[in-house]
């Protein structure tokens, strides 16, 4: 960070720090008005009843259907994050070992582009591809593999496949720097000491990559847990997820106290904070370890 290094060219007449912070007032005002004050309102209203501080709204919020939505969201996020963490490095390794620079760059660019995809168009593309009369469904049926009725794209397993479309490229982008950081000398040293490929991976490479893999898992988990647009377009209210529940409370489809929505929002924020906090902590640890 060049900004943190005291520069000899720095003029003696520096702004005193209060004036300096005042220059950031527009930014601080924006953060307060649209981020922190509204979120704080939600937290406050989920905890305070006319009778005072209480967890009553949380007790009322956790109906069987809400508990199911948390189970579904956590299962979906864990599955897609795990698939991403397992498959991503394999694809990343294949990309990195491609001899042609142009192909390597094109594939990285593809991951870069597709990780920002999601939402309605993606969900619809999967309906066309893997729906009951989808292109792949028809091709597979022609060779004797019938996906339906055991599999439905409008289900949680369908969502898993659709989410993988943005989770896999994200994992590839997250892990490429760590894979590049694996020094060639480590591989040579391991082989010279008599290790085979499998031993190199289990005893040398994976332990080095472990913090990066774990922190990526947390980021992918959060990425999936907060998602709503893809799930809503693909499955509507059929798959019971936390975000779908909160959205239907906002739209007023379920007549309930708004404080119930606040309580659900706070619980999902806690889960998100654990993931993102863990991601940042492990990331910082991994960076320190590399130096």
């Amino acid at each position: 960070m060049p900004s943190a290094i005291p520069s000899p060219a720095r003029r003696p007449t520096r702004h005193n720090s209060l004036t300096a912070w005042a220059g950031l007032l527009p930014l601080l005002f924006f953060a307060a008005a649209f981020q922190f004050v509204p979120i704080f309102t939600v937290l406050q209203s989920s905890l305070i009843t006319p009778d005072g501080l209480t967890l009553e709204y949380y007790r009322n919020a956790f109906s069987p259907s809400i508990i199911e939505s948390f189970v579904n969201s956590i299962r979906l996020s864990a599955t897609t994050a795990l698939l991403g963490v397992v498959l991503g490095p394999i694809v990343a390794l294949a990309i990195l070992s491609t001899p042609h620079k142009l192909v390597r760059n094109a594939l990285t660019a593809l991951a870069d582009v597709t990780t920002n995809f999601g939402g309605a168009p993606l969900a619809f593309a999967f309906i066309i591809t893997l729906g009951s009369t989808g292109v792949i469904t028809l091709i597979l049926a022609a060779v004797g593999i019938n996906l339906y009725p055991q599999f439905r794209i409008y289900s949680i397993s369908g969502l898993t496949i659709a989410y993988l479309y943005f989770q896999l490229p994200l994992m590839i982008l997250l892990i490429i720097p760590s894979l590049l950081g694996l020094k060639k000398q480590l591989w040579e040293a391991a082989i010279n000491l008599g290790a085979n490929t499998r031993q190199y991976w289990t005893h040398v490479a994976l332990p080095i990559l472990a913090p990066a893999l774990l922190s990526s898992f947390l980021l992918l988990f959060a990425n999936s847990f907060g998602a709503y647009a893809t799930a809503w377009t693909l499955t509507g209210p059929d798959v019971n997820l936390v975000t779908v529940q909160i959205a239907s409370l906002i739209r007023g489809e379920v007549q309930l106290q708004p404080e119930i929505a606040d309580a659900l929002a706070v619980v999902s924020l806690l889960i998100m904070s654990l993931c993102v906090g863990g991601y940042l902590w492990l990331g910082a640890k991994a960076r320190r370890g590399r130096v």
């Binding site: 509204p38 309102t41 709503y228 975000t243 959205a247 929505a261 929002a265 999902s268 993102v276």
Partner: peptide, 13 residues
């Protein structure tokens, strides 16, 4: 870290 649905809820509330 703040899901879209939670951000929308907080602004509406």
């Amino acid at each position: 870290g703040v899901p879209g649905v939670v951000l929308a809820l907080s602004l509406i509330r």
